[in-house]
């Protein structure tokens, strides 16, 4: 009898863990994408340590902003982390999504980023990012598309007043 109780309790705990673990994973995935930056190949200027830390911080924030904006069709996170062409494009995307009743859920499984160009004056940096992304397109609450893929992105970031902002973010077929 006692054994049966322990078995039932264990099964209950295992069920709870199995339910909570993906949820936690998703929460953390949504809140803070993992960004690994390699600056060894940056040309023509070496990336300073301070810049390196700032790039990791701000590129992470940019992806977080993409997830939030596309999931909720809000523009505010974009304005804080994007500028120029990238801001224009994501703004248009959010507007179009809103107009068509769509949202996009991005489950971010991390980014392996190489700095490939750092301008001589230190004002712009280009990154090559191999991102593991799960994308779900939702019509209302119905998932109408879902895929998981490794996607290659090229990003150009430029220095703004207090942070680096993403000016270009373009995906390309490998």
């Amino acid at each position: 009898m006692k054994l049966a109780r322990i078995l039932i309790l264990s099964a209950g705990v295992a069920l709870a863990i199995s339910g909570v673990a993906p949820l936690l994973e998703r929460i953390f995935a949504d809140s803070k994408p993992q960004v690994q930056l390699n600056v060894k190949n940056a040309q023509p200027r070496e990336v300073e340590d301070v810049t390196q830390n700032a790039i990791v911080r701000d590129y992470t924030l940019a992806w977080q902003a993409i997830s939030t904006s596309l999931a909720n069709n809000t523009l505010q996170p974009l304005n804080e982390n994007f500028a120029g062409f990238a801001l224009d494009k994501f703004t248009q995307r959010v507007k179009d999504q809103k107009q068509n009743g769509l949202t996009t859920r991005i489950i971010d499984h991390g980014h392996k980023v190489d700095a490939i160009f750092y301008s001589p004056d230190g004002a712009a940096i280009e990154l090559k990012d191999t991102a593991s992304i799960e994308t779900q397109v939702l019509d209302g609450s119905t998932v109408i598309h879902s895929d998981q893929a490794q996607i290659q992105y090229y990003a150009v970031l430029t220095g703004a007043e207090d942070r680096w902002k993403v000016r270009v973010l373009e995906s390309t077929a490998k």
């Binding site: 494009k89 248009q92 995307r93 179009d96 068509n100 397109v137 109408i144 598309h145 973010l169 373009e170």
Partner: peptide
């Protein structure tokens, strides 16, 4: 048909 692109959505 929905075309969901990086910077736009076409319906």
């Amino acid at each position: 048909l929905y075309l969901v692109g990086p910077g736009q959505v076409i319906k």
